[in-house]
Amino acid sequence: MLLIHCPYCEEDRPELEFHGAGEAHMERPKNMGDISPEDFEKFFFIRENRKGLVFERWRHLHGCGRFFNAARHSVSDKFICTYKAGEPKPELSDEQIAAVLPPAKGTPANEPIVSKGDAK
């Protein structure tokens, strides 16, 4: 069970109180009334779903009820940070990214790490 820092409650809370809510920073187009099928596809269907550093939405459903965003590494499951909905994608330092990478050295049982260029 993850421990997730809620930026509104200002503390780490157990995952049981949260719901994942998909990829972050997918803004709803302003021209929904006359959107082209291509733009609709991009908005509604296409997600990066990448392995590595992800920006994702969570809702503190059984807590303060707020949606917020998180930067997390999908292999190590480690959070870099969480931030309030509406705030811009944070600039992450190399140190911040390095801190959540799974270790490079290791066994074939575990995949090698994502290279830094990839992570961004």
Partner: peptide, 10 residues
Amino acid sequence: CSRTVYAKAE
């Protein structure tokens, strides 16, 4: 005080 869960109940 906090909203939270108790088993399967909020």
